[in-house]
Every structure is written in structure tokens, then in C-alpha cells.
């Protein structure tokens, strides 16, 4: 089983903590899903988000601070240092936005920030497009987890490019991979896990559901189903039907 910088997770679901109706609902979503990691943002709170951050720490799950809202390596590095100080963790979800409409990461700033942060001893979880060249650069920089998007953040489109996600899995068999962003339905999470991904990370699909706690649980169940399936040797798809009962004695040609 692949581990995340030495930490193994008993639940492949990671949840964001933004845009829930209330902190009480957020807590219920974590409780009912058993999500193992909570991502949390720092930038817009301007150092004064303690009450909320303490609540997130009180969830008792692994905290993965992020650099959401950063548009350059420099901003992301500053935010990562602040996060390390506040949350006492060297984990950082590195997010450097390059395009405001799609929230697509800026690959150049991302790689530059990853190099700097890995050199400072951070354990970097980079949010990236599904590009294999960027993935290679990030691994060369020292990242031991990669987090390709499924689709743009908050879009709920699912896995927009399954081919690229599959080849990324094949290209990095030893690196833990997480589909991050774009998932809208539990079946999307199952699909990612069936491909052999190690976890899924999402926020909007749960936070904005009518019943976030129940939806979080649905995602956890789907992710676990996909994980079990991936380990159980899925059958290959075939063009010809393969009947499971013998046809001897009947005309079958």
C-alpha cells in the first residue's frame, strides 16, 4: 500500500473545509464519512482564522494546509511557511493558480514553488493538471505525492481526461496519486479509485450538497468500493460476450 510521506490512510477520502453551510455541518461530514485528511486554506483569513482552524484541528484528522488563492511561487512559499508555523505540520498542498476562470494551476510557478519548498523540508502535495511532463518535474523536485485534477475546481465534471489519468498512473507506479478537484458524484470517485489512484480529494460536491454529511458518506463508500475493486483484479473489457453458463448442446454459431 502506498503511503503519503510515511502516513497510511484507512480511508481514501480527503475533504476540503470551505463553503459548508456551517462548521457544525462540516463536522458532521467528517464524522459520517470518516475522511482521513482535511485541507484548509490560510491566505484570505489574513492570520486571523484561529477559531475556524482550531475547529478543523478538533476534527482529529490529518491536516493538509493549502495555498489556495496564491498566484505565484513567492506567495505560495510564504503561505506554506505560515501554515507550517500554525498547524505544526510540514505537509502542504501546493496550489498556484494560473488562470482565474478555470482555476488551472500555473505549471511553471508550481514547479518553482515545489523545488523551493521541498528544499526547505516541506512534504509537498502539488495540485497539477494531468500532464506527465509536469509530473516528472515535480517528482524531480522532490514531491512524493502528485495530485492531478479530474476537472476544473468546483465544476463537478468528473474525470475529464481518463486516458491521461490512466497513463499517469502507469507512469508513476510508486508515487501515491490523488485525483484532486472536479469530482461531482460518488461514481467519479469510484472511477478514479478503480484506475488505481490512492485517494480522492474534493470539497464543493460535498459542501454544497443538500445534505453534506450524507453526500460525504456516499463519496467515502464509493471511494472504498473503487479501492477494493482495484485491488481485486478487475476483469478486462471484451468485445465478445462471454457466457458464464456452458452452451454445449445448443447451437451457438
Amino acid at each position: 500500500m502506498r503511503d503519503f510521506y510515511g502516513v497510511t490512510l484507512d480511508n481514501p477520502l480527503m475533504l476540503g473545509t470551505a463553503r459548508y453551510p456551517s462548521p457544525a455541518v462540516l463536522e458532521a461530514a467528517f464524522r459520517d464519512s470518516g475522511a482521513a485528511i482535511a485541507t484548509v486554506s490560510l491566505r484570505r483569513e489574513r492570520g486571523e482564522g484561529q477559531a475556524f482552524w482550531d475547529m478543523v484541528r478538533g476534527l482529529g484528522v490529518h491536516i493538509l494546509p493549502n495555498t489556495a488563492g496564491c498566484h505565484s511561487a513567492r506567495e505560495a512559499i510564504t503561505t506554506a511557511r505560515m501554515a507550517r508555523e500554525y498547524f505544526q505540520t510540514d505537509w502542504i498542498k501546493l496550489e498556484v493558480i494560473g488562470h482565474d476562470d478555470t482555476l488551472q494551476p500555473d505549471p511553471f510557478e508550481l514547479v518553482a514553488a515545489a523545488e523551493a519548498l521541498c528544499a526547505e523540508g516541506f512534504k509537498v502535495f502539488p495540485y497539477m493538471t494531468e500532464d506527465q511532463v509536469i509530473a516528472t518535474r515535480l517528482v524531480e523536485a522532490g514531491c512524493r505525492v502528485l495530485m492531478p485534477w479530474g476537472a476544473p475546481i468546483g465544476s463537478g465534471l468528473g474525470l475529464a481526461n481518463p486516458f491521461a489519468l490512466r497513463s499517469l498512473r502507469a507512469a508513476f507506479p510508486d508515487i501515491p496519486l490523488v485525483v484532486d478537484a472536479g469530482l461531482g458524484l460518488p461514481s467519479h470517485a469510484a472511477q478514479a479509485m478503480e484506475m488505481g489512484y490512492d485517494a480522492v480529494l474534493l470539497n464543493t460536491a460535498v459542501a454544497q450538497a443538500d445534505d453534506p454529511a450524507a453526500m460525504a458518506r456516499a463519496f467515502a463508500l464509493a471511494a472504498q468500493a473503487g479501492q477494493i475493486a482495484a485491488r481485486s483484479g478487475p476483469m478486462p473489457a471484451r468485445d465478445m460476450a462471454a457466457p458464464s453458463t456452458p452452451l454445449i448442446g445448443k447451437a451457438f454459431l
Binding site: R44, E45, R46, G47, E48, G49, A51, F52
Partner: peptide, 13 residues
């Protein structure tokens, strides 16, 4: 609606 106790003027963003 920001989860923050930061006082002070409106930010540019």
C-alpha cells in the same frame, strides 16, 4: 463571508 477575526478595512480583492 470569511472565516476570520481580522478587523481592518475592506481588502482590495
Amino acid at each position: 463571508q470569511i472565516e476570520s477575526a481580522a478587523t481592518g478595512p475592506v481588502t482590495a480583492r
